[in-house]
Design a protein around this nucleic acid. Sequence first.
DNA 1: TCAAAAGTGTTCTTATTACACCCATGG
DNA 2: CCATGGGTGTAATAAGAACACTTTTGA
Lengths: 234, 234
Amino acid sequence: MTRYSRQHKIVVAVDCIIFGFDGQELKLLLIKRGFEPEKGKWSLMGGFVQPAESFEEAASRVLHQLTGLENVYMEQLYAFGDPHRDPTERTASITYFSLIDIHKYEKQISDEYHAEWFPVNQVPDLIFDHPAMIKMAKEKLRYKAAIHPILFELLPEKFTLPQLQNLYEGIYDTVLDKRNFSRKVLSTGLLIKQKEKEKASSKKGAFYFKLDKKKYQKKFDAFLNFIPNPDNLK
Amino acid sequence: MTRYSRQHKIVVAVDCIIFGFDGQELKLLLIKRGFEPEKGKWSLMGGFVQPAESFEEAASRVLHQLTGLENVYMEQLYAFGDPHRDPTERTASITYFSLIDIHKYEKQISDEYHAEWFPVNQVPDLIFDHPAMIKMAKEKLRYKAAIHPILFELLPEKFTLPQLQNLYEGIYDTVLDKRNFSRKVLSTGLLIKQKEKEKASSKKGAFYFKLDKKKYQKKFDAFLNFIPNPDNLK
DNA sequence: TCAAAAGTGTTCTTATTACACCCATGG
DNA sequence: CCATGGGTGTAATAAGAACACTTTTGA
């Protein structure tokens, strides 16, 4: 068969913007780049797309390499293609952002890559256009979480309402009324109250909830509205 | 400097999903593909990314080639990268969707490519994964237009409320109450009433409106809510 | 026994929906 | 003079926001 013989060809990589939540603040998993150029500098976890791989497969592979995790929430963010974004050679980057339960990733794997979690607002200097990627990912997360029940992906299987509220407050850098928050969240029908309480962070203890996975699938694309005035955010 | 010498390289193309509205229904501009493989079949307008071009630049160039238009609404949709999506040779496609005023494009240019407008729900057989691209673009348009004042991009500078309502009704395949619709639209403050009326489509005539460009810029990312129950759409 | 965090109810305000009549005009 | 499509108002309902006290219990 014919080929597009004279066409310009480009190295294509994937980069993963990996979010986690430690109960206090939103964090990003970054690695120390292991090869030239910019070896030893901080970077998003990435990798080159291999001949038999789709972009999604490459991104899942890369995420798995770093975290040991599979089947986590991941979506394509944006294709970065500026011809000079990597000074070595033209390289496009298809970026993916994922939300993981920070307690589930395998630290020893992560250690091999010299990975560290950084608070989203205190990331170190990064290579190339990775700061722009992170900026876009943060914006998209805030945008999407204001409408869709996406943040549960960052929490462990069982979590409390105060934990969930903390997460929203952290992401939107705001303070929410707990009465209104719990009413709104519970009114979605997405949460199932457990019998046990989390007793570590308060004397009274807070009830655990689990996600109702079936309803979650169904409501995922629904427009919720967890954040009162998404317009008025800082 | 070093190069990623042994890395797999990929031909990268852009494809444009071009929406227009003729006053009656939402349409897509498609071309007859001019080269092998699949020469003569219907296709999205596309082109290969050139060495010095970013993806955005390539997409703008391709759109301009077909329509003669510049500075129209365009946003990146998705990067399609399945290794076998083009049987000739591995080719990634970065897709962009744009909204144009259907009356502004230059028909003679379009004729060179044997381009035609098709109602979005009656597109012919298309090459490769172009049907999936169109499906995604339609979904994104509906999604986005339910929240953001994006559909004005499809209308001429001056338009009437009935025209605008027709557009929303067409895109959501629904019927809206004109009293509630006009109240909601006008309450955004985005529209400036003109003195003239459009007299072609009714005896009484309908007032023209123009977009308040400044407010439009400001409110573009705001969450509006033109469609009563985005959840309950068919 | 008290400090600290969890949990819950009511009122007010605003937004959304449903719904029906008059207006202007060209034929 | 009437058929056609444009334009407008009101009342009922639902959703969102503001707000404060009681409960539990470990130290």
